[in-house]
């Protein structure tokens, strides 16, 4: 798994989902001077973007292949898959990887059971449940030591 962000010149990023997490990432990439496209089916979600956001927004079903083509996903240096639905994220990530041959993908999953599916296809994931539980587990073991 080799998800890396090259930051020397302007890069082209596509972000699926403009919820709380998606908008933070899109704002951050834009603030660093990169070109960013955010896709969300809900136009109102783009209000989460900051005033300084200079990227482009596309309204549409994120997992539609037509939408991905319009976003020029095949030219993306990295793709962030952050819709709130695990199955949608799995499909987007696999489509980006297998159909558009873009390898630099990171996806969010809520259900830890889905981590296996992503691992098989070598797609980097971030799982909030796991992040939180690992953190809490450390907290517990710390308490036990005292």
């Amino acid at each position: 798994m080799d998800f890396k962000i090259p930051f020397k010149k302007s890069f082209y990023y596509v972000v699926f989902g403009c919820g709380r997490l998606g908008s933070i990432i899109a704002n951050e990439l834009s603030a660093k001077g990169h070109s960013v496209v955010v896709i969300d089916r809900d136009e109102a979600s783009f209000e989460n973007l900051s005033f300084d956001f200079t990227g482009f927004t596309l309204i549409g079903e994120a997992n539609e292949i037509e939408q991905m083509r319009e976003a020029k996903i095949d030219k993306a240096h990295a793709v962030f898959v952050l819709t709130p639905d695990d199955n949608t994220n799995i499909m987007i990530a696999l489509t980006v990887k297998k159909y558009f041959n873009v390898n630099n993908i990171i996806a969010r999953v809520y259900n830890p059971k889905n981590i296996k599916t992503f691992a098989k296809y070598k797609i980097e994931i971030v799982c909030p449940t796991m992040l939180a539980s690992n953190r809490l587990k450390k907290f517990i073991s710390k308490g036990e030591k005292q």
């Binding site: 997992n63 639905d85 695990d86 199955n87 949608t88 799995i90 499909m91 987007i92 696999l94 889905n114 599916t117 098989k120």
Partner: peptide, 15 residues
């Protein structure tokens, strides 16, 4: 009615 759900179900069945 959602392709992503069909995909994930079939992937699980197969894998």
């Amino acid at each position: 009615p959602r392709d992503q759900d069909n995909l994930v179900a079939c992937l699980a069945a197969r894998e």
